[in-house]
Write a protein that binds this DNA or RNA. Structure first.
Lengths: 211, 211
DNA sequence: TCTTCGTCTTGATCTCGATCAAAGAGATTG
DNA sequence: CAATCTCTTTGATCGAGATCAAGACGAAGA
């Protein structure tokens, strides 16, 4: 019934428009959802972290590309059996509705970022989100410095934020030069004062972005 | 059980963060969902046309502002009874999941627009969407000229597209000057060749944007 | 050690859309 | 039919981010 799929970083899990005959959830690694125009412009529309659900019960075709951003393991169910299970177990449909509403809220929060935030605010927002989700996974409680690795390349960040990779790089450098973040190598980040980062993100002081 | 609410154009239906004790659907008129930053920057995150559903079963607080863009009539249910009905009738939860997945797809399509399209493509996309939904309601089948009224002010369009109202105005003028659209007054639009408009929108030739 | 390759940084310049400013076009009111 | 008022158009200028173009930094392999 349930089985596992592994992908290497960079591999495509499903192409937009392909038949997708399974649903699943991320066990480890990071996957991204993205849409591409004919001329190659791409926009990432979602980031899947461990425990996130993938798939559309009741939909034949995948609406966007799903790509493994890092090495990825997913836990999958074939779609048909899953759907009949859903029919029989009302609780599952309700849980799925919950999760979909959360995704919808996240997508709409991201619309505000894409439509109205400056490059600096976009970068600060992204780093804050990654830091918070990372910190949650690490179960760090206090408000000491946060330490984590960026799971995305500069290109992936630019696809997520609707920017170019050069702008991403410049803004990250700017935040580093101002001491808002510290960088070791290209990926390893320390945030000495999370509140200070948040102030750059354009979000309300407390974390509406993540609940 | 079921009751009606009316609003005048410009009135707010619910404020983001307010308790929202009803769900409902649009009977006539247009409502918009929007998010606002502390400094006043606004992004519209959804457009509600007649038959569209409003509300989050299982959520106490409204996640965004809901505003009547035109005079508006909604058909409402108090949330508690609706939720218990949902518990008892699995079909409803499934239908709601369907609708939420559609909204999610629309939101993500809009993310591509906000993050990667040019001002001209944004305007063309918006007009195409309004034209198509209008045309569907008018049940016009053929491919003759489409005629309809823009239900949004320039400001509302700019809030939806992540632009300024001046840019919206200029791009609409440009499309008019090139004969891609015809304007009578400020709102009444004729589209002599829908395909020609679509070519400016950056979307695939056939209508992925609307299904 | 040198090469190569992928990723990232930085500089120079350009451009699209924002911003600032003024005026037109319809409605509504006295 | 002036006097507002709201919505819209258009012009002039500015600036954030895109684009074009080198290099720098590490990792992996010969």
């Amino acid at each position: 019934m349930k089985y596992y799929r592994s992908y290497e970083a960079g591999q495509t899990v499903v192409w937009s428009g392909d038949r997708m005959d399974f649903v699943g959830s991320v066990v480890s690694g990071i996957a991204s959802l993205s849409q591409t125009m004919e001329d190659g412009r791409t926009q990432m529309v979602g980031l899947l972290l461990p425990s996130d659900f993938v798939g559309r019960p009741g939909r034949e075709l995948a609406p966007y590309d799903v790509t493994a951003t890092t090495d990825l393991v997913m836990c999958c169910f074939r779609k048909k059996p899953f759907e009949s299970m859903m029919m029989e177990t009302p609780h599952i449909a309700q849980r799925l509705l919950e999760m979909t509403l959360d995704e919808l809220d996240a997508a709409r929060e991201w619309m505000l970022l894409l439509g109205r935030k400056t490059a600096r605010e976009k970068i600060a927002s992204l780093i804050a989100i990654i830091a918070r989700r990372g910190a949650t996974l690490q179960l760090k409680g206090g408000d000491g410095p946060l330490v984590f690795d960026l799971p995305l390349t500069r290109v992936a960040m630019s696809d997520y934020l609707g920017l170019t990779l050069e702008t991403v790089s410049r803004q990250i450098s700017a935040l580093r030069n101002e001491g808002i973040i510290q960088l070791e190598g290209k990926r390893h980040v320390t945030i000495p004062d999370f509140q200070r980062l948040l102030n750059e993100s354009g979000d309300d002081a407390d974390g509406g972005m993540l609940n």
